[in-house]
Amino acid sequence: MLYGGVSGADPTAGGAAKHDTDVTHVNGRTNVRQMGETKQMSVVDYLVLGDEPHLEANACTSCGALFFDRRNACAKCGKQSFEKRALSNSGIVRSYTIIHRAAPNVAVPYVSSVIELDGGGVVKGNLLEAGSDPEKIELGMKVKMTTFGCGVDEEGTEAVAFGFVPA
């Protein structure tokens, strides 16, 4: 089992998310779900699983600034009130790099990218299914979010991560 990189990605995982399953709500969100025998967990809190996996930000109710981490106050305006906001699954490649040297259990090469989501939000994630030839990866190209299994723990729970594929 590889824990990352394109060869660690299960290309069917994104599709599997569409199966109707018993969804467990945690903290008001669907970041744990039962897939038949397999229990799944999103690899980070801000990835919401369920029928339509998407990213969710903490949005400042005062200035609209978006954050993916647990918040104390707003880094932009200092106010302390936030609401959950579902972000778009489509966006453009703002930047990327092709990683050839990584920790031993991360498969290389893989493409790390910074994605600007339509309607707001900037996030880092792997660019999948785009190859690793810089001639063929275009800055500004349109992408859409997908999900993939990125590891299984000793109890058989699968961690699900998000990445982006050319739209």
Binding site: G4, N31, S42, V43, T97, A102, V114, A159
Partner: peptide
């Protein structure tokens, strides 16, 4: 990974270097 459990400010269940970019 042993048992997945959320930790940290992003509720991460495992190291994400190489999984969610670098």
């Amino acid at each position: 990974p042993t048992g997945f459990e959320r930790s940290g400010r992003y509720g991460t269940v495992m190291p994400v270097e190489g999984v969610l970019g670098t």
